[in-house]
Design a protein around this nucleic acid. Structure first.
Length: 427
RNA sequence: GUGGACGUAGCUCAGUCGGUAGAGCCCCGGAUUGUGGAUCCGGUGGUCGUGGGUUCGAGCCCCAUCGUCCACCCCA
């Protein structure tokens, strides 16, 4: 099939069959974040390229070859955001939000990375991210992890596990890094091509290598946790105590290093084995130096991001149906008089019942056709307005989803029916 | 950026030895009057991804190209 236009590679449509999943997940996550006292912040999709280079790290693949960059008309180099933290930190500094000693923020939306698409990885993908500023202790790390655990619990996410590690302070990490490079240099002959390349650009990531031949070398490598500074060690111990106290199980994964330069101390990931090679549905960590690095004060921070495509794929395979947005009622009209009165009735009902989801039959059609449309709209009831109903000032209600006899009500009784049958507002 | 697999109807796929295309689902219509879903009947819909080549003849063989998927790299 020759197609005139196709979507850009790696940028997908979410069709009506999928949007209830998206709406359900977004609503649930949002409710939980808000219930923990986090405030929404909305950020641009585009920032100066330099912002990402300075925060994510110039030698990371994201900045080196995965960013969508372009020149603005005035010559500025701009980029579609590849992640959310940098823009959030920029906004907080620029707008003075960090004059408040503590900030709990969340945001959501599309991110862009020019990678080869595969399962769970797309060029436009969606995250919900959380950032907490001004809190240096492990208690906020624990709060964030509790919050994510609650998200999985409420959504019914199956088969995810928490992995935890500490990268130490910037200084401890630098010292460890030298020790690791030394070790890897001594085994240089045994390294595969990728690892050799990373040896100097990003040596910690060698620990993450999936190459089978590398596993023995990695197993003998110096362990980051053994070289933590005292402060980071205590931070991690305390975090582990918090997690145990609330019954959150995890595994310490000393190879968990995260790709972005700005992390320090706590890093964590929620992973599943059910999404192929891209099994991380949520990842985060502490980035105590970033605010200062971007020109702000010395303010500690910690955050995480949830990959919505991955989360939704996992939920969808477990039969999660999300937020049902189909109408409750479908208005069927037969005859000229009914058609004339139908629109008035529909708008009157909408005035009186703002929560009512009512679909109005358009383009006529036989009675049978209209009922067929009512059925396919997934409405609960067909409201039937025909000549008989007009003559007797009544309306018929046919139940489309339950074994209940069709009834005819006086038009004046329709409000009572809706009062009894519409779902109560939850608040 | 690298590798492998695969491109036939909106979707999932069949298509024999090379003889110019089929099924199921979906959608639309019908099966006595104003009653959806189940069943039955009928219908719409395809330059076989695209462009070349071989051949009397190509969905099928060859080349190129584009695309999709999966994996590597990287990462949510």
């Amino acid at each position: 099939m020759a197609k005139l236009f196709q979507a850009v590679r790696g940028m997908n449509d979410a069709l009506p069959a999928d949007t209830p999943l998206w709406a359900g997940v977004e609503a649930t996550l949002r409710d939980i974040l808000v219930s923990y006292g986090y405030q929404e912040i909305r950020l641009p999709l585009v920032e100066k390229t330099e912002l990402f280079a300075r925060s994510i790290g110039t030698v990371t693949d994201i900045v080196e070859k995965e960013m969508y960059t372009f020149n603005d008309r005035n010559g500025d180099s701009l980029a579609l955001r590849p992640e959310g933290t940098a823009g959030c930190v920029r906004a907080c500094i620029e707008q003075g939000l960090l004059r408040n000693p503590m900030q709990r923020l969340w945001y959501g939306g599309p991110m862009f990375r020019h990678e080869r698409p595969q399962q769970g990885r797309y060029r436009q993908f969606h995250q919900i991210g959380v950032e907490a500023f001004g809190m240096a202790g492990p208690d906020i790390d624990a709060e964030l992890i509790c919050m994510t655990a609650r998200c999985w619990q409420r959504l019914g996410v199956q088969d995810v596990a928490l992995e935890l590690n500490s990268l130490g302070t910037r200084e401890a990490r630098a010292a460890y890094r030298e020790r690791l490079v030394g070790y890897l240099e001594s085994r240089r002959e045994d390294l595969d091509e990728d690892s050799r390349r990373r040896l100097h650009s990003n040596p910690l990531r060698v620990l993450d290598s999936k190459h089978p031949a590398m596993q023995a070398i990695i197993a003998e490598a110096p362990v980051l946790l053994d070289h933590l500074d005292l402060e980071s060690r205590q931070h991690l111990d305390r975090l582990q105590e918090f997690l145990s106290a609330v019954g959150i199980t995890y595994t310490l994964n000393t190879r968990l290093v995260r790709g972005l330069d700005y992390y320090s101390k706590t890093v964590f990931e929620w992973v599943t084995g059910r999404l192929g090679a891209q099994g991380t549905i949520c990842a985060g960590g502490r980035y105590d130096g970033l605010v200062e690095q971007l020109g702000g004060a010395e303010i500690p921070a910690v955050g995480f991001a949830i990959g919505l495509e991955r989360l939704i794929a996992l939920l969808g395979s477990d039969g999660y149906t999300g937020l049902d947005q189909s109408p409750q009622a479908y208005l069927v009209m037969v005859g000229e008089q009914a058609e004339r009165r139908g629109l008035i009735l529909a708008e009157t009902l909408r005035n009186a019942w703002p929560a009512l989801h009512l679909q109005f039959n358009c383009s006529g059609g036989s009675f049978k056709t209209q009922l067929k449309r009512a059925d396919r709209s997934r409405a609960q009831w067909a409201l039937i307005l025909g000549q008989e109903e007009i003559d007797s000032d009544t309306i018929a209600i046919k139940f489309l989803r339950e074994a209940q006899e069709q009834t005819t009500l006086p038009m004046a009784a329709l409000d009572d029916f809706l009062r009894d049958h519409l779902p109560q507002p939850t608040q």
